[in-house]
Amino acid sequence: MLGIADPWVALAYLLCIISALFCLIWGILKWNKDDPDSEPEDEIRHWAEEEDRVEEEL
């Protein structure tokens, strides 16, 4: 198969290609999905206001 005599080496190449395709498909499916770990906009605004207040006090 493609000049590779050892079937284990051929299997390693095949698994690398399959994993790359899997990662590509996974990335396409998950592209621009909402991030569950992202902070809500209200928390970010509250944090920014508190930071501005602390900087003014300094």
Rank of each mutant, 00 (worst) to 15 (best):
G3V: 00
G3N: 00
A5S: 10
A5R: 14
A5P: 04
A5G: 05
D6I: 06
D6A: 05
P7H: 04
W8K: 15
W8L: 15
W8V: 15
W8Y: 15
V9L: 15
V9E: 11
A10T: 09
A10Y: 03
L11A: 15
L11Q: 12
A12N: 09
A12G: 11
A12M: 07
A12D: 06
Y13I: 15
L14D: 09
L14A: 11
L14I: 04
L14Y: 02
L15R: 01
C16Q: 12
C16Y: 05
I17L: 10
I17S: 08
I17G: 12
I17A: 06
I18K: 11
I18E: 02
I18H: 02
A20H: 07
A20L: 02
F22D: 12
L24I: 13
L24D: 10
L24G: 10
I25F: 03
W26I: 05
W26V: 10
W26K: 08
G27S: 09
I28K: 01
I28T: 03
I28D: 01
L29W: 07
K30Q: 08
K30T: 15
K30I: 07
W31H: 00
W31Q: 01
N32T: 08
K33F: 01
K33P: 07
K33C: 04
D34Y: 00
D34H: 00
D34K: 14
D34I: 07
D35I: 10
D37A: 06
D37P: 02
S38D: 12
E39D: 10
E39R: 10
E39K: 04
P40G: 12
E41Q: 11
E41Y: 08
E41T: 14
E41G: 04
